[in-house]
Design a binder for these strands. Structure first.
Length: 427
RNA sequence: GUGGGUAUAGCUCAGUAGGUUAGAGCGCCAGGUUGUGGCCCUGGAGGUCGGCGGUUCGAGCCCGCUUAUCCACCCCA
């Protein structure tokens, strides 16, 4: 095997690609209903955009970025997440005028240099949405309902929504201090990772899976107790909105986001069948990010989901779409093959999906090929019929056979396939 | 970056205490029908047993290294 896919990447073969198309179509459909417009940004950006946007000290920026220097000496990075680029574009093209709400969605490959595991890849696709300019908790609730309905629509109605507030620049530092104070006495008992986190990011200790750490942090103060009044009110507003919209959720004060830009609302949808990487869709509010990246102070909120993870969680069977079967042209001799070639192209120009044999195989082999391709009809072009200007028409589903005049073939099938979509399901 | 599992045909996997030409199912090709699919029967093609090195008279099987992959940790979608 001379060449294989680089570590953590994979090829998507036709059968699997159909599932991807199905998922993407569902997402686009949902976005269209909710008034999101698509934005396509470059797959790489200036490295500094991510460093400033995502946060200098985050794992993503410190060790997971595919960064390179271009021949022109620009420092560039393959995007490790979607939001920073979208924000950059929104600023660059003045989409964020005061008093305007901008709703955008994106879909595309994302890159992180990590050790691959179940549901985690070095190149993966993310789909996501961003809402700019809307500060109120009602938007948060609406966005969560949107996400929840999208997940339910692809068969993930069992995903559990957990929400939290990570506070704002006013109250988060207070909580950090409160955490350190509470754990100072037992610091020596924490696991090595948490000992490090104590200094770097004590909030992460709440997320630790080590039994002892969980015990130690069990009755530590919760951020919800330390939130400032505006943050408290906001969270209450989100909860009320969710209840009004009938979206089930649990408040999990231990949710911590890995990106620095989040403020107030943070959330995750957890799927039960993915092992350790069980977060299937996540996001939050980022009221300071636009300003941080040099734009007009603009609140924002959004989420992202990993396509591979979604597909993994949905399971093998999902996303299989029914498409009309082809008309298969079976030719019995060289003369018939010439006719078949012309006929195939003519039929396709008329919108009829058509297949034919390329190897001059026996009729038996061509029939088998037709069957395997799921053909609805086989048009048998044989010497006897052709001299009469006809062809044998076999209905592969009913197994009945009849005769069709050659010059009636195109109009006949145009009628049969009229109105049938030959592309992927719109739903 | 850390720990563990796995690596045999296109796919899913067998392979007995190391011993002749490495097997099965599925898939693929062909024949059974002189112009006809799905089921069935018969035959066929296809493998440097991940790579390198070592132990041995002899290695798919044992040892070392290496690569890939999977799982867990870290973190995250």
């Amino acid at each position: 095997m001379p060449f294989t896919t680089p570590r953590g990447t994979h090829d998507i073969l036709p059968d699997e690609a159909r599932r991807w198309q199905w998922l993407e179509a569902r997402f686009r459909h949902a976005c269209a209903l909710a008034g999101f417009g698509e934005i396509r940004t470059p797959m790489f950006e200036e490295t500094d955009l991510f460093a400033r946007g995502v946060g200098e000290d985050t794992d993503i920026v410190t060790k997971q970025m595919y960064s390179f220097t271009s021949p022109g000496n620009d420092r560039l990075t393959l995007r490790p997440e979607g939001t920073a680029g979208v924000v950059r574009a929104a600023i660059q093209h003045s989409l964020l005028t005061p008093g305007n709400v901008e709703k955008l969605f994106y879909y595309g490959p994302t890159f992180r240099y990590e050790r691959p595991a179940k549901g985690r890849f070095r190149q993966f696709a993310q789909l996501g949405v961003e809402v700019f300019g809307a500060p109120g908790p009602d938007i948060d609730a609406e966005l969560l309902a949107f996400a929840s309905d999208f997940l339910a629509g692809i068969g993930l109605c069992t995903a559990v929504l957990e929400i939290n507030s990570v506070g704002c620049p006013e109250c988060r530092p207070l909580y950090r201090d409160a955490l350190r104070n509470a754990l100072a006495g037992v610091r020596g008992e924490l696991c090595p990772d948490c000992d490090r986190r104590y200094d770097s990011n004590p909030l992460r200790i709440l997320d630790c899976k080590v039994e002892r750490c969980r015990e130690l942090s069990a009755d530590v103060p919760v951020i919800l107790d330390v939130l400032c009044e505006p943050c408290k009110t906001h969270l209450a507003g989100v909860e009320a909105g969710l209840r009004a919209l009938g979206v089930a959720f649990v408040v999990n004060p231990h949710i911590v986001r890995g990106l620095d830009y989040y403020t107030r609302t943070a959330f995750e949808f957890i799927a039960g069948n993915l092992g350790a990487q069980n977060t299937v869709l996540a996001g939050g509010r980022y009221d300071g990010l636009v300003a941080e990246l040099g734009g007009p102070a603009t609140p924002g909120i959004g989420f992202a989901a990993g396509v591979e993870r979604l597909l993994l969680s949905v399971g093998e069977g999902a996303g299989e779409t029914e498409r009309p079967g082809v008309v298969y042209l079976a030719a019995l001799d060289a003369n018939a093959r010439d006719t078949a070639l012309v006929l195939a192209t003519t039929l396709r120009r008329a919108g009829v999906p058509t297949a034919l044999d390329y190897l001059s195989r026996s009729l038996k082999a061509q029939m088998r090929d037709a069957n395997r391709q799921g053909a609805w009809y086989v048009l048998i072009l044989g010497g006897d019929e052709m001299t009469r200007g006809e062809a044998a028409l076999r209905d592969m589903r009913g197994a009945s056979q009849s005769t069709l005049a050659l010059d009636a073939v195109v109009p006949y099938f145009r009628d049969v396939y009229a109105g049938l979509s030959t592309t992927v399901d719109k739903e």
